[in-house]
Amino acid sequence: MKLKYLIPFVIFVALVALFAYAFRLDPREVPSPLIGKPAPAFALPRVDSPETLAGPADLRGQPWLLNVWATWCVACREEHAMLVRLAREAGVPIVGLDYKEIRGDAELDASRLSPQEEREAALLRARTWLTQRGDPYRFAVLDLDGRVAIDYGVYGVPETFLIDAGGIIRYKHIGPIDERAWREELQPRWAALGGGKP
C-alpha cells in the first residue's frame, strides 16, 4: 500500500529521463530517407573546366564524400580547413557541390544577371575561394539553381554525404565537419567502407 505513494515520484523520474534525452536531440537534424539508396546521378559543370560535366559516376569504385557548400556560407568557412586536411593527410576523395553560389547569396540580386553572367560570377567566386583557402576537392561542380541539391534532400549548407564504392549513400552529416564530427561520426564509417588511413 505504501508503494502507491511512490508512483508519482517514479513517473517524475521517468519524465526527467525522457526530457534529458529528448532535449539533446536536434530537431533540425532531419533523418535522410536516402541512406542506403543509390546517390542520385547528376552531370554538372566543373569549376575548373566548366565545359566538362562531372558526376558521381566518376567516383565509382571507391568510398568518397559529397560536400555541399557555397562561398556565402559562413559555416563552410570553418569547415573548409578541415576538408583540406582530410584530403591532404588522409587522402579522402571529396567532391564539392557548390549550392546556389549566386542565387543563395543574400547580398546579391541574381534576377538581374543573365544565365551566362551568373555562371561567370559563380565560377569566379568559387575559384577565388579555392585558390585562397586551398582546394580539397577531386572536383567541384556548380549547382546554380539548387536542383541537384533537392535531389539529395539538402536543406541547408554545409551538408556532407558519405557514399560507398558501389555508389550507395551510407551516411549524411548535417552542418560543418569539425574535428569531433570526423573522429566520432564519419571516420569510423569511412574506415568500415575500406577507406584509406584516418
Binding site: 570553418e78 540580386d109 541574381a110 539548387g146 541547408g156 554545409p158 560543418p176
Partner: peptide
C-alpha cells in the same frame, strides 16, 4: 542561435 546550429540557410533576395 547561429552558433548553436552552425548552419546557414540560403537567405538571398527571396525570389
Amino acid at each position: 542561435f547561429v552558433g548553436r546550429f552552425g548552419f546557414a540557410q540560403a537567405t538571398g533576395e527571396v525570389p
